[in-house]
Design a protein around this nucleic acid. Structure first.
Ligand SMILES: [Mn+2]
Ligand SMILES: [Mn+2]
Ligand SMILES: [Mn+2]
Ligand SMILES: [Mn+2]
Lengths: 228, 228
DNA sequence: ACTCAGATTTAGGGTAGGCTAAATCTGGGA
DNA sequence: TCCCAGATTTAGCCTACCCTAAATCTGAGT
């Protein structure tokens, strides 16, 4: 309920903190100060300070030296930002000639500036998409989200035929490389070979064979054919 | 040249100050502290402080107790913001279902968040419009502007047939009223009668007659048929 | 049970940009 | 020429966030 009041008053910093903490807390795990600091490229001391303020505002639960979790209000605000971010990305790709390697940076700023009205207008002209250009699910306007974390490419058994589900959006050059392999959400391909100890992975995409390193194995997430 | 460096580093506040000062300085007149304060809804003391900082940064020329003028750098930055603001307004009306009474507020925030790239993409899909939804001229990307200040409706002689040029964008309810009269940029109408001493003005728009007060007379600006 | 490296918090400091109240300037009228 | 109302600036304060350096906690490994 507090959230209704804060709704309009959260600063850009606060919004980015909440979003980062959400992404660092799969199924409500606690996020650590240093994880948050690393993701937001801030000093741990700064994060400590902000965490204290956000707890006092009721957006976080903080156990000193242990970590933070979002409260219901905090989670609501985080999902609202995630919806904005991902819809903006989808809109820019669909209507303003952006590619998946360039949208993230633009959305990172715009997400704080657009009105709820504008977000919903963009959703409408897009036909209420379920995922963004990186395959990440878009929360609904009332805060539901289908977290469909595919399995990392590095864990797909050799021989399997799978579909790209989602690709980590940070690092534009990495996204360009991935696109150059023909991989993007929805594309089906085959894992031909997988070497142990984080070794290279051989894949075949649209008839062409590529060998990629373990970093890509972490960053590209896949799904079998069962669902979807 | 300083501007090139600052380009990316101007804050939202600074950008709004420069824009306000530009609009308060037709043909390089000096803008006063209190005018700026009023337009930005800030205290005169706050404006004094900011004016000092902006002068030190080379964006303003300040003669204490007299007023401020934009430097070349300041003017460049102001026109860049004006281009952004007006293109965003045009884009929102054209593609996202906004009306001229709702765009200003949205643009006031977005103008600080969009990249140059996005601004130019919007301009491109719009076909590089010359004016925004309120009839205000859009500066070019290299900072040219055709200030086409029409004459206020209150100064149009009775009997004249004129065209709406531009309408003051602040105050959404006033814009809705004006729209309800059938007036918007490009619409031709006749001034039937004009009473002295800021008296009411009778106009005929598309066959319908209306009597409006002097406030509208100031806010609606017109042009004869010669140009355009 | 101790220890200490690494994580975290605290202390202290900086910038940006607001505000109110007090001091100061300026120009028009007597 | 003088005076004072109104405009402007200065003084002092506040909030939000960021930083580095110092203090403090915690837990894994002996
Ligand atoms: Mn952001
Ligand atoms: Mn994304
Ligand atoms: Mn603005
Ligand atoms: Mn406008």
């Amino acid at each position: 309920m507090n959230a209704a009041l804060q709704h309009e008053t959260l600063t850009r910093s606060v919004e980015d903190y909440l979003k980062a903490i959400y992404r660092l807390s799969p199924q409500g795990r606690a996020a650590s100060t240093s994880e948050i600091a690393q993701r937001l490229e801030l000093s741990p001391a700064s994060v400590s300070g902000m965490v204290k303020r956000l707890s006092e505002q009721g957006l976080l639960e903080h156990v000193p030296y242990k970590g933070v979790q979002l409260t219901a209000d905090g989670r609501r605000a985080a999902l609202r930002m995630l919806r904005r971010h991902r819809l903006i990305e989808a809109y820019l790709v669909a209507f303003l000639g952006y590619t998946w390697d360039t949208v993230h940076e633009e959305a990172e700023r715009l997400e704080h500036a657009v009105s709820d009205t504008m977000v919903e207008r963009m959703a409408a002209v897009l036909g209420n998409p379920a995922v963004d250009p990186h395959g990440d699910p878009i929360p609904t306007s009332d805060g539901d989200i289908h977290e469909t974390a595919g399995i990392p490419l590095s864990e797909v058994p050799a021989g399997a035929r799978v579909e790209v589900r989602q690709v980590e959006e940070s690092q534009p050059d990495r996204l360009r490389y991935i696109a150059s392999l023909g991989l993007r959400p929805g594309v089906r391909f085959t894992v031909v070979d997988r070497q142990p100890f984080r070794g290279p992975i051989t894949i075949e995409v649209a008839g062409r064979t590529h060998v990629v390193g373990s970093e890509l194995g972490q960053v590209v997430r896949c799904a079998g054919d069962e669902d979807a």
